[in-house]
Write a protein that binds this DNA or RNA. Structure first.
Lengths: 361, 361
DNA sequence: CTGAAAGCGCTTACAG
DNA sequence: CTGAAAGCGCTTACAG
């Protein structure tokens, strides 16, 4: 374990410049007063010694690290990668460092990540919580005065800012299009995991007007949009057409789509996120089902390859980069001292048509 | 600027436990000796106060932060996202934090990123240098005792570890396949930017056996493989078939492919990286060129959607996650004190066939 | 095994 | 405007 060669310190610079460490610090740290003369000397000394500040020492005193932490589900997925890029752009612009971790959608991992970020003394955190309940670790971070911004998903009753998209409206619009084109059997595949209810429960309760969807996780809000579109068209929802992958897994989605294709086949499919889309495309390819002749498809979340396939794939576009930027901006505001009540920023979606959806018959 | 509520410190714990801060530190930091009795007391006190160590303070003393920095080209690209995931997995396993920045393939950004990482006192860095020359910032980091591992690309003559893939062999194999199937006009698109030579120069020099490619950037090594395959087949290379995008830009690639298609058309195309592939697919789609009937295609770097398209797209697979893991492991070894000469780890590639390459009719 | 003291590299009141 | 001194929260020799 070779200990690092320590570079020049403020004391070294002060000695060479013939001033006190306080003065050297004021010049180098750009705080407090300093006369032009001493200033020059200090700067020259610093340059000749190749002085580089040790931000750790500064942070220990100021109590702020100018570092924020991010807990993503999986940095490798295009969804989180784009969000991270948005966060990173804002952070970089402000000279803020970024520590990134993955939760892999596992609460234990998430708790450990938050713990690590706290010990590293981040000034704030952005995370996509993996469960709507069990936010004690987040509450205790907030109690410590560390602001949190939630992205895409939110913990029920957590007093923390949130940035997401209008999942319900996006899905409703996508399904309304399909219905308008004559589709009546529209399959849907989503994560759709919940400790308290099944898909059939949810469909029944929603149709009866008993579900409030503001705090639901995205796949449920998208299902809500799916149901709403049917209701607006005066059509009943067949719960068997709505498939639950149970996790963010393309393989699980593929299996569910195979089930969907084996029975009385739908004429269109709506996928609730990128991984569901991947699993669906794999299943359709394997079954040699031709799009859109045999099946129309529209997907939530636009992925780069959707413009390459023949035909292109229709998608509900989420502004992923903007989500990350908004979350970072919200967090910087909090770190800067803003103390208003938790804010919720809901960004809009838009649909892009590329030819994977056609009128029935 | 609300200063964070400071949590319990070692002094608080020591006071409550009725021991010295030294003893409390030894128990909580798990270093030095401590009797069972005091140990219990300290642990109990820490628990009741909700003590969380301040890693900044520890790092200031030990000189190590247990944090590594990464300078990626663009965390949003699947290439870097996968590499980052590999790095992250290893780091997490060792309880090491990860600070991530983007260079956007811009030397100024890269220099600034390295500067930030150094000030944040990372124990080491992994980066994909954006230029083969101009590595002063990297040399000065090394001089400070901060180990660096280069990934995918390397600076000429920098005494730092490197992890990459066998670009030359991968490309040679891909091109050899095409040649074997009767293709004679094989287009290639790559970044292929170099301050000192043009593509025609490179082709001529390489054919004459005058190029050493160990230190070249990937697109040139891939071109080297392209040339080699032709040489092995006793065929001349037409430099006009090799197109230079000039930057990692899908749009630039798209324009070059349009040029390639407008003249005497090649029967196959080899793309040198994911962005080149994206641009190429866009150009082919717009020109309504059917794969593989009118044109065969094989791409360096396997992307998730290549299995979804009809037909699937043949690719040279790089073990991106493994590259990241290897780089992280190399770096951890260096941080742990290994001082042997710089190592070069070159991982193999393999080709996956999906139907986008056919024999020339 | 334990404690008193010094110190990591900075910033921050406080006098002057 | 400048300097001497204290201190951020830890760890590290050094006595005992």
């Amino acid at each position: 374990m070779s200990k690092r060669k320590s570079g020049a310190t403020i004391a070294d610079v002060a000695r060479l410049a013939g001033v006190s460490t306080a003065t050297a610090g004021r010049v180098l740290g750009d705080y407090g007063y300093s006369s032009g003369e001493k200033r020059e000397k200090v700067l020259a000394a610093a340059k000749s010694l190749g002085y580089r500040p040790n931000l750790l020492a500064r942070s220990l005193i100021t109590g702020r690290t100018r570092t924020i932490g991010v807990v993503a589900g999986d940095i490798q997925s295009p969804f989180y990668a784009s969000i991270l890029r948005g966060i990173s752009d804002v952070a970089e612009r402000h000279g803020i460092g970024l520590i990134i971790t993955n939760s892999d959608e596992n609460l234990d991992h998430e708790v450990r990540s938050v713990q690590l970020l706290l010990e590293k003394q981040v000034d704030g955190m952005i995370l996509s919580p993996c469960r709507p309940d069990g936010g004690e670790h987040l509450n205790s971070a907030l109690a410590l005065g560390i602001p949190i911004v939630q992205i895409d998903r939110q913990v029920t009753d957590l007093e923390a800012d949130f940035v997401g998209v209008d999942n319900r409206a996006g899905a409703r619009e996508a399904i309304a299009r399909l219905l308008h084109l004559g589709h009546r059997r529209i399959g849907m595949i989503g994560e759709l995991e919940h400790p308290e209810w099944t898909i059939a429960d949810f469909v029944a309760q929603t149709a009866a007007g008993h579900m409030a969807s503001e705090a639901l996780f995205p796949s449920w809000q998208r299902l809500h949009g799916y149901i709403e579109a049917h209701m607006e068209a005066g059509l009943a929802v067949d719960p068997l057409l709505v498939r639950q992958a149970g996790s963010y897994s393309a393989e699980a989605a593929e299996r569910q789509i195979q089930i969907l294709l084996s029975a009385e086949r739908p004429t269109a499919i709506f996928t609730a996120d990128g991984l569901m889309t991947a699993g669906t495309m794999a299943a359709l390819g394997a079954a040699r089902i031709s799009i859109p002749a045999e099946l129309s498809i529209i997907c939530f979340d636009d992925l780069d390859w959707m413009g390459f396939t023949q035909p292109g794939i229709d998608a509900v576009v989420q502004p992923r980069g903007a989500m990350g930027e908004a979350a970072a901006q919200l967090l910087l505001d909090r770190i800067g001292g803003k103390s208003e009540p938790a804010r919720r920023i809901i960004l809009g979606t838009r649909i892009i048509s590329r030819g994977s959806v056609v009128a029935l018959g």
